[in-house]
């Protein structure tokens, strides 16, 4: 038991969905638990093992001064740091504050904004520390999480998909929804979800974030030709991965 690698699971600003993904690996969970020691996972256990840890999984984005400090401590005490989900890799939906005035936001929601300690921006961990592996997605894919954990445990490279959601549609033989008239972010969005939305007759809404070198300009032009307004384009690129450079820059072209 004592020789098994230790894993700590950390929450920052988030909805808890990505760490829940681990508990949702119903078929694999007991097998994984047999190969590691859970050192820190408050969503599931009150037991704790002190650091250093072999692997830290980090969910959520940095939105408070305390979080900005905590991620540095985690980096110092962890062998590998894996950022999981759109919040941890891009800043998440709460990064919409980066385009607004956070003081105004606070006064809209809270009668006593002065009680809050919050940063003006929501940022990914890569803005603060060196990250060893990023899993994109809102939420992350179960299969990717299991593969990443097994890769880390056996010291091999993880199979993180590259390329666009379009590749997964082709593989599933889903007819292209954009050709059928539904605007779709699939061409610029990183694969990994399994192209779920188009299989439900819906355009991809980009929850896995931009793929490598996405041609957002061309896609936005096509959407315009299909009748999308500038407001629609702005909002489409400004959701769960709004702060990822490729999407941030494209949204700014329509603001």
């Amino acid at each position: 038991m004592a020789d098994l690698p230790t894993i700590a699971i950390w929450k920052f600003s988030s909805c808890d969905g990505c760490q829940l993904t681990l508990l949702d690996c119903e078929d694999e969970l007991l097998g994984i638990l047999g190969r590691v020691q859970i050192a820190y996972f408050p969503e599931a256990t009150r037991a704790e093992i002190e650091g250093p840890w072999d692997v830290s999984l980090v969910e959520g984005s940095v939105t408070t001064p305390e979080e900005a400090e905590r991620i540095k401590e985690i980096r110092e005490k962890s062998g590998l740091v894996v950022a999981i989900g759109a919040c941890a890799t891009a800043g998440g939906i709460q990064a919409l504050r980066n385009f607004a005035n956070v003081k105004e936001y606070a006064s809209i929601v809270y009668p006593h904004p002065e009680y809050l300690e919050t940063l003006a921006t929501s940022t990914p961990h890569s803005d603060h520390i060196k990250i060893d592996l990023e899993l994109q997605g809102c939420p992350i894919s179960k299969a990717q999480l299991v593969d990443a954990l097994l890769a880390v445990l056996s010291g091999r490279r993880p199979n993180v998909p590259t390329g666009a959601v379009c590749v997964e549609c082709k593989r599933r033989e889903t007819p292209c929804v954009q050709v059928l008239g539904t605007p779709c972010l699939g061409p610029v969005t990183q694969a990994g979800c399994g192209a779920i939305c188009p299989s439900y007759a819906r355009g991809c809404y980009g929850c896995f974030g931009p793929k490598e070198s996405p041609n957002t300009v061309s896609l936005a032009k096509r959407w315009s030709e299909m009748g999308a307004s500038e407001g629609t384009l702005l909002r489409a690129f400004r959701t769960f991965n709004a702060n990822k450079p490729a999407f941030r820059e494209e949204s700014a072209r329509h603001g």
Binding site: F12, T63, G92, I93, Q94, A100, V102, V109
Partner: peptide, 9 residues
């Protein structure tokens, strides 16, 4: 739990 300001954005 840090505020995320849903009602604002």
């Amino acid at each position: 739990e840090p505020p995320r300001f849903f009602e604002a954005f």
